[in-house]
């Protein structure tokens, strides 16, 4: 542990943990989005349910699920802790600030966006993870696909999900390239590429996720 104690103690170490867990969650989102996108096959959820069944039973995936939850928890608690620490670094605030003159609003609002995402995450886990993993409500007649259909039949739920995805998009817009900067990856050749990939990622992934509740609500997917 001694070797890695700087990760817990120093300000840079804490940021490195935020960056690493953030990148891990970015990879997770690709998997999550890919599996869920199977609903667009419009086959009544056959392929999607098969994939969901695999994700629920495969021992490797289930182990990764634990790692994923740990990653999310560390990212949340470390993030909130840093927000409070950083607030302490400026006990008297300015009467006037013009932040937009020197930075993007979303890069200054990662704590707020993250908190919105946390609220979304709790609602989202209750909708799907809780029902599929911790209850016996789902079976051959009532699949995860049916659950999705049911959940996304309510307009307010669809709205909450869309707001969640907008928060995610802006959170990623800063977080993606910020993680690389924190880990020391700033290079004339590669940083523009990373920024471009980060920009596309922050638009595409939340957009695909957003189409899912809309598609169910409007009956595009049967």
């Amino acid at each position: 542990m001694g070797v890695f104690s700087f990760l817990l103690k120093s300000s840079i170490g804490k940021k490195i943990i935020m960056g690493l867990t953030g990148l891990f969650l970015i990879i997770f989102l690709v998997v999550h989005c890919g599996v869920n996108a199977l609903i667009f096959m419009n086959d009544g959820g056959v392929l999607f349910n098969e994939a969901a069944e695999f994700m629920a039973t495969n021992i490797l995936i289930r182990t990764m699920e634990i790692v994923l939850f740990l990653g999310i928890l560390v990212h949340i608690f470390q993030g909130l802790y840093l927000v409070f620490e950083n607030k302490k670094a400026r006990p008297v605030s300015y009467a006037m600030t013009n932040g937009n003159a020197n930075s993007k609003w979303y890069s200054r609002s990662m704590g707020l966006l993250g908190t919105l995402l946390l609220i979304f995450l709790i609602i989202h886990l209750r909708h799907f993870w809780y029902v599929s993993r911790l209850t016996n409500e789902l079976n051959a007649n009532e699949t995860l696909f049916d659950e999705m259909k049911e959940v996304f039949s309510l307009l307010w739920v669809v709205m909450v999900y869309l707001l969640g995805m907008i928060s995610l998009s802006y959170h990623l817009m800063h977080g993606f390239q910020s993680a690389f900067q924190t880990l020391g990856w700033n290079h004339k050749k590669y940083t523009p590429i990373i920024s471009a990939i980060g920009f596309c990622y922050s638009i595409i992934i939340p957009l695909i996720f957003s189409i899912m509740p809309i598609a169910f609500y409007l009956g595009w997917i049967k």
């Binding site: 300000s11 302490k88 930075s103 890069s107 200054r108």
Partner: peptide
Amino acid sequence: VAQMDKEGFGSCTNTGACEAE
């Protein structure tokens, strides 16, 4: 870095405001 932390400065969230100003 240890002295910087000890002085009570905040941590970097890469907003880029410092570079701009």
